[in-house]
Computed example of a mutant assay.
Amino acid sequence: MSILVIAEHDNQTLKAATLNTITAAARLGDEIDVLVAGSQCAKVAEQAANIAGVNRVRVADAPHYAHPLAENLATLITTVAAEYSHVLAPATTTAKNALPRVAALLDVAQISDIVAVESADTFVRPIYAGNVLATVRSADPIKVITVRTTAFAAAPVEGGTAAIEPLAPTVEVPGSRFLSQQLTRSGRPELTAAQRVISGGRGMGSGANFALLEDIANKLDAAVGASRAAVDAGFVPNDYQVGQTGKVIAPQLYIAVGISGAIQHLAGMKDSKVIVAINKDEEAPIFQVADYWIVGDLFKVLPELSSELDKLQQN
Score class of each variant (00 low, 15 high):
S2L: 14
V236F: 15
Y65C: 02
I198T: 08
K300H: 06
A223L: 01
T21R: 10
T122S: 03
T18R: 10
V44S: 03
N238T: 13
Q314R: 14
A104I: 01
I275E: 08
A277K: 11
V132W: 00
S199F: 03
A89L: 12
A226N: 05
S180P: 13
V289Y: 01
G38R: 11
R177I: 05
A42E: 02
V80E: 13
A49E: 10
Q195K: 12
S306T: 13
I111M: 01
S119G: 02
F287G: 11
G159D: 00
G201N: 09
K96H: 00
G187W: 07
V59R: 05
M204I: 10
A262F: 11
T75G: 06
F152T: 13
F210S: 02
G205H: 08
N55S: 15
A193T: 08
G29S: 08
Q181A: 06
L312C: 03
D291I: 08
V5I: 07
G130D: 08
T13V: 12
Y65T: 10
R137I: 10
R228Q: 07
L28Q: 03
T170I: 06
V231Y: 04
R177G: 09
A109Y: 02
I249A: 09
I278K: 04
I22S: 12
L14Y: 10
V57P: 01
T146C: 04
T122Y: 00
V117H: 03
Q195H: 04
L191Y: 07
A82S: 15
V87E: 05
G53I: 13
G201L: 12
V102K: 09
Q110C: 03
V147N: 13
